[in-house]
Write a protein that binds this DNA or RNA. Structure first.
Lengths: 197, 197
DNA sequence: GTCTATAGTGCGATAGAC
DNA sequence: GTCTATCGCACTATAGAC
């Protein structure tokens, strides 16, 4: 039917994850990934502008989910409440069936500093997007940036816990707990009255 | 006296910043940087394991300053109070004389995604170090991670404002304000009682 | 698809400092 | 002699240009 198999990007993605898991990221070349699914290196780089990117496809979808959560928040919600809604929305993407895959993928990332850099960069771009969405709701720049960055931090911490082997709770539950812990920490500092300024 | 000029790394650093500023990061090769100070490409890579790293030397010093701030905090300080102390300590490194240099350097980073990735990575490693220092003080893992990551976020936001052309306040003052704003935001969410869980 | 520049590594040789 | 900074060369892989 088709001149080439559909879902080329997805096949490359799966092949890459498998090779990275067995041989490691640095000891796997783009050529090896491409040839393992019957393609050439050139085709790999047409789908993924750099080698690391093959592990981070689908992040655009995650950004959209965060933004959808922002939109769902009631009009009078405070910035942190909006971010809490975004966290709930984003967390719902990570169902229990995805946990094993997330673990495998994260194990690869945790082994390689270059991949960790890319991961942080992706998280930062989520924060930037959420900041923009908060600004669009009329939140001032400082509050928007702080709330968005804080939200992403909470998400990252929650995600790390979610993929622990002994963890049973849903990502949404963990994220809510982590956010609650943050509010507790800041409240304690607020009440002490011992901060500068 | 000496066969080789001392301070090779620093000379490479200055030359790199100048070339990056005029030609841009990507359009400057490691060879050009090295030869502009009478060295070879191979020597450049002996000092900096990768091309981006030449812009991020001195980050170890920043980490130490954060940790010194943690040490200075009173034993009964809460995690956020400890982080506030670390912020004060780290901020003091960035004196008014350093502002122009920081602006020049940041302008280069802001032009290049690969450099932004590295910058985020460096900030993340500060957070990791501060988390460790908090854990050593007996703070539990979740609180330590949250407080440290939050502190680094506050630092990054404050730094961005500090290098704005119209900004006059010291970095320490700005950081204290940003932290205060975070406490205000979280307190508002706490009080609303509208968060999940 | 092909071709090429550049990043980055490995290893041996050199040459001054001590 | 040892130690260390540099050079020179060969090499691979990434990534972008054509």
């Amino acid at each position: 039917m088709a001149r080439w198999e559909p879902g080329t990007a997805e096949r490359l993605q799966r092949a890459a994850l498998e090779l990275f898991t067995t041989r490691g990221f640095e000891r796997t070349t783009a050529t090896e990934i491409a040839e393992s699914v019957g393609l050439t290196e050139r085709t790999f780089f047409r789908h993924y502008s750099d080698k690391r990117e093959v592990l981070f496809h689908g992040q655009d979808e995650l950004v959209r989910t965060f933004l959808a959560g922002v939109d769902e928040a009631p009009p009078d919600a405070s910035p942190i409440e909006v971010v809490a809604a975004a966290l709930g929305s984003a967390s719902s993407v990570f169902t229990d069936e995805r946990r094993p895959h997330s673990r495998t993928r994260q194990a690869v990332i945790d082994e390689n500093p270059a991949l960790q850099e890319r991961e942080r960069h992706k998280l930062a771009s989520i924060a930037t997007a959420v900041t923009g969405a908060l600004r669009a709701r009329g939140v001032d720049e400082l509050a928007a940036t702080l709330a968005a960055e804080t939200g992403v931090t909470v998400f990252a911490i929650a995600f790390t816990r979610w993929i622990r082997e002994d963890e049973q709770r849903s990502l949404a539950d963990i994220a809510a707990d982590v956010l609650h812990e943050l509010l507790t920490l800041t409240a304690a500092a607020q009440d002490s009255g011992r901060l500068p300024r």
